[in-house]
């Protein structure tokens, strides 16, 4: 089963995202900030990370930079999912190694489309 780590400080967003990912056959884990997510990745790397930007303790960009330094940390596909919707943020995210970028609000179609482009949808 494909694995997805959902990183967002909003429990509601995590729940909505989890439903979408589970409906397309992903096993999901959740993290409420970048630090918790990074600790989880040090134990086991997911195939896919859905990543919020603004979170307490460690933000999404800091998490992504740290993840890419881990052994095998270049493997997971990371897709930002954030209210930050300007070109500068998008370029900064891509520069830090994000594979895709979703501007909130999102829906199941957008997530499925991005997964399809990344070759992660059967």
């Amino acid at each position: 089963m494909k694995t997805c780590l959902i990183v967002d400080d909003s429990r509601v967003i995590r729940k909505v995202a989890r439903q979408i990912f589970e409906s397309i056959g992903y096993a999901c884990t959740e993290a409420e900030d970048g630090k918790v997510a990074l600790d989880a990745c040090k134990t086991v790397l997911p195939q896919f990370v859905l990543l919020d930007w603004n979170m307490p303790v460690m933000n999404g960009l800091e998490f992504l930079r740290a993840l890419r330094q881990l052994p095998g940390g270049d493997k997971p596909s990371v897709v930002f999912c954030t209210t930050e919707n300007d070109l500068n943020h998008i370029q900064e995210a891509l520069g830090a190694g994000a594979n895709e970028y979703i501007m909130k609000p999102f829906d199941a179609d957008i997530i499925r489309g991005k997964l399809e482009q990344l070759g992660l949808l059967d």
Binding site: Q91, E100, Y101, I110, G113, K114, Q117
Partner: peptide, 11 residues
């Protein structure tokens, strides 16, 4: 612009 369009193309 998010439905089907890769973000690299958006940029």
């Amino acid at each position: 612009v998010q439905r089907g369009l890769p973000v690299t193309y958006l940029v």
